[in-house]
Design a protein around this nucleic acid. Structure first.
Lengths: 203, 203
DNA sequence: GTCTATATATGGATAGAC
DNA sequence: GTCTATCCATATATAGAC
């Protein structure tokens, strides 16, 4: 049986799909209407214009993952477990939303001011990166891990998690990997990346 | 004194700037004409259409860096020095072309078939990644570095080098870093990243 | 709320004068 | 080679019937 989905939800789902894959400037209102199984006029009836619709989708996407991440940051595991947990939950979430990293990075790089204003205006959860960075700092002071620039380590962790999604076609092309092979590699990375990081920083 | 730059070169320079920052779908022929100090009609006189102009720029950009990279891959340094050299020359080149990673990753992700066809059709140098991967493999067999999936290590190295450029606005936003601070971090990474990698894999 | 038809704006491309 | 003017396709947005 088919559940009755409201037109608004159909539009949101469709818009999410199109915007995430095509980005703002590549997305066509017609494509969104088609994907939602309605016509353009109805799109404008529900969401006045492309900008408004985009803003909704963008904020919804960026907010969605924050609570899960924060629950990791806020836990009182030791630094190694925290890194392990962060890497595996983050990669897990990205595998469920593979277009998200490219989408966000791209919009942010095309139009930094507009996007940042959008985020700042709408209040909501923020990722507790500071908490994470403080934990790293404190682990260094307690002599648990090698001294390293915390900011630099943070960038490394994010790089190792996110880049394989942003550069998927590039990596597939370079390494001649098909869809399945690449997905298996991403799956393995949930452990490998944490090992790689911890190997590097542990005393 | 001002050197006399041919109109064609002015167009190419302008197109490079606009395409790299805006991507294919975000770039406007008008913007390119403006940046070149000419009008649209003249653009079309030199390069029949947007696609042709884009193809030229894209191929020129992707080819430019290959010889330098290959000279590192082809050298007969040991694996640690090779990693150090690759990381530092690669980051050096990216700092000189900070928009390039986002540009390539984005076009590839928006239109993989088209882009790959473009690359395959035009013959030219290819990066010798295989050589690098074989070197890693052989270092593992000789017991010089920890056993690790070579493909995985390769992805890690690329991630650590490239991601900070793709995600520059995101990282700046998260970490509240201004232009100068971020550029300093990138500069430091020429050493730090190699240390980070080698720390992780050395016996 | 949903549609068809249409207005309006934008951007790529061409014609033709100089 | 370079320009102005214009065309035409595409894309966003609105009007108005049902």
């Amino acid at each position: 049986m088919t559940i009755n989905i409201s037109t608004e939800d159909k539009i949101i789902d469709a818009a999410k799909k199109v915007f995430l894959q095509q980005g703002y400037s590549g997305a066509r209102m017609q494509d969104i209407a088609d994907a939602a199984g309605i016509n353009k006029a109805l799109l404008h009836y529900y969401f006045r214009n492309k900008d408004k619709l985009f803003e909704l989708i963008f904020l919804q996407c960026t907010q969605k993952m924050i609570p899960t991440i924060n629950s990791v940051f806020d836990s009182d595991e030791d630094i190694f477990n925290k890194i392990r947990q962060f890497v595996s939950t983050y990669i897990e979430m990205l595998s469920a939303n593979p277009y998200l990293p490219m989408f966000i990075a791209n919009e942010l790089s095309k139009n930094p001011e507009k996007v940042i204003k959008m985020i700042m205006t709408k209040e909501g959860d923020r990722p507790h990166f500071n908490k994470f960075i403080k934990d790293i700092q404190s682990a260094i002071e307690q002599n648990i891990i090698e001294p390293i620039q915390t900011v630099s380590l943070f960038i490394n962790i994010m790089s190792l998690c996110i880049f394989p999604y942003i550069a998927k076609p590039m990596m597939q092309f370079f390494l001649k990997l098909d869809e399945l092979e690449y997905r298996m590699i991403l799956e393995q990375r949930k452990q490998e990346v944490a090992d790689f990081i911890i190997n590097s920083i542990k005393k």
